[in-house]
């Protein structure tokens, strides 16, 4: 069977779990361990990517420049990846990341808004960069819509394209159908990025590989927002046993995961009640901290806030909607004006 390329956003997506506070020591230590294990791409940055340090989502402890130079120095054998959301970062951030030696540049857009990436994918294609594109919150679009958006990404210059299950909402059959549709509509490697809200991240990733995905994301200990991402050190051996070689050294991988468990997080992600609700509501897991903060302040049930955010079809980046929803549910709205 075909090989699968493992893309590891532990040092980017994991940031959501620790409010974007990873230290230089933590970044360097994990990058060195991942390099030793031969994990092909190590992605680094603020949780929402380049230029996204903000009050809206959380301010980074370490600047983008320092994060990138630290990880670059630590990677001798494998590639460095970065992530950017148009409207959050700009071409200036892309230029700076390339100057820092980023090998793989991912542009993320909401799953129905591919046209937002036209300019940046074009810019990267012209610069000769390895540009990938991921469709976020992909449970909010049909397989056919995802396929046509993915085809557009390739037309703009993406060399790989795929989906993120940002709310951890999918079941394996959903993934099979969507990856199949994207594969049929494009001729570049297809990406799958899972979240574990409903405990399906590894199973969904296997389904993705079987449906033809050739780039699969995983984070050490599942480090990520809410219930976490696909757990990397489980994903890799499961893929290998399913017949998808990854080229990653098992002991090296387990050492990297142990380092992550010890040094990156106070506790590994757990599928707690709030994560299940966010998965059911189809809301980005990264909203968890702020939903809990705002709900406590407003004296309301955070589960109600998640379901209301789902009803309003909130997408990643709209954290300020939490303030408004909490205000409304607590009957505070309008008093300030």
């Amino acid at each position: 069977m075909s090989a699968v390329l493992i893309h590891d956003p532990t040092l980017r997506d994991g940031q959501h779990a620790v409010r974007h506070q990873l230290s230089v020591t933590a970044l360097r230590g994990y990058a060195e361990a991942a390099d030793k294990a031969g994990i092909p791409v190590v992605e680094v940055g603020h949780g929402n990517g380049l230029g996204a340090s903000s009050l809206q989502v959380g301010r980074s402890a370490v600047s983008d420049d320092l994060m990138l130079s630290t990880v670059r120095d630590a990677l001798a054998h494998v590639k460095m990846g970065v992530f950017m959301l148009p409207g959050w970062g700009t071409s200036d951030d892309l230029r700076r990341a390339m100057a820092h030696g980023a090998d793989v540049i991912r542009i993320g857009v909401h799953c129905t808004e591919m046209t937002l990436a036209e300019r940046h994918l074009g810019f990267l294609a012209e610069a000769g960069a390895e540009a990938h594109c991921v469709l976020m919150m992909s449970h909010m679009a049909t397989p056919a819509e995802l396929a046509s958006q993915a085809a557009l990404a390739v037309r703009y210059g993406a060399r790989a394209v795929g989906i993120m299950d940002s709310a951890g909402h999918f079941l394996p059959a959903d993934v099979t159908e969507r990856i199949g549709a994207i594969g049929a509509a494009t001729d570049v490697p297809v990406i799958f990025h899972g979240h574990n809200n409903l405990g399906m991240a590894v199973a969904n990733s296997v389904a993705a590989a079987e449906a033809g995905a050739r780039i699969i994301d995983g984070c050490a200990r599942g480090f990520g927002a809410g219930a976490g991402n696909t757990q990397l050190e489980v994903l890799v051996p499961v893929l290998e046993r399913s017949g998808f070689p990854t080229g990653i050294d098992l002991y090296g991988l387990l050492d990297a995961a142990d380092f992550a468990g010890r040094e990156l997080m106070s506790a590994p992600p757990v599928t707690d009640s709030i994560s299940i609700v966010s998965g059911l509501a189809g809301v980005f897991s990264g909203f968890k901290h702020q939903v809990l903060d705002q709900s406590r302040r407003a004296g309301i049930d955070p589960r109600d806030v998640f379901f209301e955010l789902g009803r309003r079809q909130a997408i990643a980046g709209q954290e300020d909607l939490i303030i408004g929803v909490a205000a409304e549910l607590s009957g505070r709205r309008g008093n300030a004006a």
């Binding site: 809206q56 909401h110 808004e113 079809q313 909130a314 980046g317 300020d320 909607l321």
Partner: peptide
């Protein structure tokens, strides 16, 4: 200063919103 723009695909469409955060 920092400026961020989100494009919301919600149906029915979401009313234009701007949040000013300050320290």
């Amino acid at each position: 200063t920092k400026a961020i723009l989100n494009i919301s695909p919600a149906v029915p469409p979401a009313t234009f919103r701007t949040t000013v955060h300050a320290i």
